[in-house]
Computed example of a mutant assay.
Amino acid sequence: MPNPWDLPDELPTDLPVSRCELPDGRVLSAVQEAEAHTLWEEISSAAPYRKAAEGLRPGEAVIDVGAHIGLASLLFGGLAPESRVLAFEPAPKAYTCLEDNLARLLPGATAFRQALGAASGTSELTYRPYVASASTLYDDAEDDARNLEAHLDNIGADERTREVVRRTFNVSQRVTVEVTTLASVMAEHDVDRVGLLKIDVERGELDVLDGIDPACWPRIRRVLLEVHDIDGRLGRVVSRLSGLGFHATVSQWGVYVGGSVHLVLAERD
């Protein structure tokens, strides 16, 4: 029987790098062109992302954890051109795009093929070639399904679109990746002041925070992180940041209403 959604029965996992042109004419390397366009539209228009870059001071570092192909790094670098951008992405194909995009479009920024967590070592990444931004060290099929269905509901997707998205999302492969900690990054790369720490690691946000030594926190001025609110995690993250002297504001993209994904922007008083 022919495939009703114009997809082969076996979807390939090794996809070629594509090109994506942003509205301003810049051309990016991308894992998936459609994904890149969607993500750029989301983050470039999101008030928390723009507010996170306000007032960044010359010489302060912007650390982008879970950088994907570098969209947030490019946004922050454009809004705060005198900042020092360090971007971390463990998925090999996404890292290839990140490295190329930063080299061409944000000279002076540095890409690292690493994940950040609670301890240094290696871990197994679930890499999703058709939705590379959803690649994760922390599998949770129930949370993935909840967020995927909420997203499809909120964009009013028809049944054909839903089936295509579900099929492509569920294509994955396991990749061994290097993991380091933020404390190690700050020591190894002589980072004295972090103007902005951005974290988008698909349920690994608490582990990234656990990898920050107490002595590092006074040197971090602002944190922007995506939190999957599972078992009260959002409250725990906000409470931890508040205890460290940050004032946290929580928001949610409209496409994730009904799902677990929230944005937290935490700034020092």
Results as ranks from 00 to 15, higher is better:
residue 76 F to G: 03
residue 22 L to N: 05
residue 250 V to N: 03
residue 187 A to F: 01
residue 235 G to T: 08
residue 64 D to A: 11
residue 71 L to G: 05
residue 124 E to R: 07
residue 6 D to C: 02
residue 176 T to P: 02
residue 2 P to E: 05
residue 261 V to W: 00
residue 107 P to E: 12
residue 152 L to S: 12
residue 180 T to S: 10
residue 269 D to V: 08
residue 208 V to H: 10
residue 40 W to A: 04
residue 221 R to C: 02
residue 191 V to L: 09
residue 32 Q to D: 13
residue 249 T to D: 06
residue 107 P to L: 15
residue 167 R to H: 02
residue 140 D to M: 14
residue 227 V to E: 02
residue 218 P to G: 02
residue 140 D to H: 13
residue 24 D to M: 12
residue 172 S to Y: 01
residue 95 Y to N: 05
residue 260 S to V: 10
residue 148 L to Q: 12
residue 192 D to P: 01
residue 130 Y to K: 06
residue 101 N to I: 15
residue 147 N to T: 04
residue 146 R to P: 09
residue 247 H to K: 11
residue 2 P to Y: 02
residue 102 L to W: 06
residue 86 L to F: 13
residue 7 L to W: 04
residue 136 T to K: 13
residue 9 D to M: 09
residue 12 P to F: 00
residue 119 A to K: 14
residue 233 R to H: 11
residue 214 P to N: 02
residue 241 L to P: 03
residue 9 D to H: 07
residue 226 E to M: 01
residue 69 I to A: 09
residue 134 A to K: 04
residue 49 Y to N: 03
residue 20 C to S: 15
residue 57 R to F: 00
residue 223 V to K: 06
residue 110 T to C: 10
residue 251 S to M: 00
residue 162 R to A: 09
residue 153 D to G: 07
residue 134 A to Y: 10
residue 32 Q to H: 13
residue 223 V to I: 11
residue 27 V to R: 14
residue 85 V to F: 07
residue 160 R to S: 03
residue 216 C to I: 00
residue 163 E to A: 09
residue 267 E to K: 01
residue 25 G to H: 14
residue 249 T to Y: 01
residue 245 G to T: 05
residue 108 G to Y: 13
residue 237 V to I: 14
residue 232 G to I: 08
residue 5 W to L: 11
residue 17 V to R: 06
residue 241 L to Q: 06
residue 8 P to F: 01
residue 122 T to E: 12
residue 245 G to Y: 03
residue 211 G to N: 07
residue 169 F to L: 13
residue 170 N to L: 04
residue 169 F to N: 03
residue 180 T to C: 07
residue 189 H to E: 05
residue 103 A to H: 14
residue 17 V to P: 00
residue 243 G to D: 07
residue 67 A to Y: 07
residue 22 L to M: 09
residue 41 E to Q: 09
residue 151 H to G: 13
residue 231 D to M: 11
residue 28 L to K: 15
residue 251 S to K: 00
residue 228 H to F: 14
residue 153 D to S: 12
residue 174 R to E: 03
residue 92 P to I: 15
residue 224 L to F: 05
residue 63 I to T: 05
residue 88 F to T: 05
residue 108 G to P: 15
residue 175 V to K: 08
residue 192 D to R: 15
residue 139 D to H: 05
residue 2 P to W: 01
residue 129 P to W: 11
residue 120 S to K: 14
residue 267 E to F: 04
residue 153 D to M: 04
residue 84 R to F: 00
residue 235 G to I: 08
residue 101 N to T: 13
residue 106 L to A: 12
residue 4 P to I: 00
residue 217 W to A: 00
residue 101 N to C: 15
residue 13 T to M: 10
residue 207 D to G: 05
residue 39 L to Y: 10
residue 165 V to Y: 04
residue 77 G to L: 01
residue 18 S to I: 12
residue 86 L to A: 04
residue 145 A to M: 08
residue 205 E to A: 12
residue 150 A to K: 04
residue 229 D to M: 08
residue 228 H to M: 10
residue 158 D to C: 07
residue 82 E to R: 06
residue 105 L to W: 13
residue 210 D to L: 09
residue 229 D to F: 06
residue 157 A to N: 11
residue 152 L to D: 12
residue 120 S to F: 11
residue 207 D to W: 09
residue 80 A to F: 02
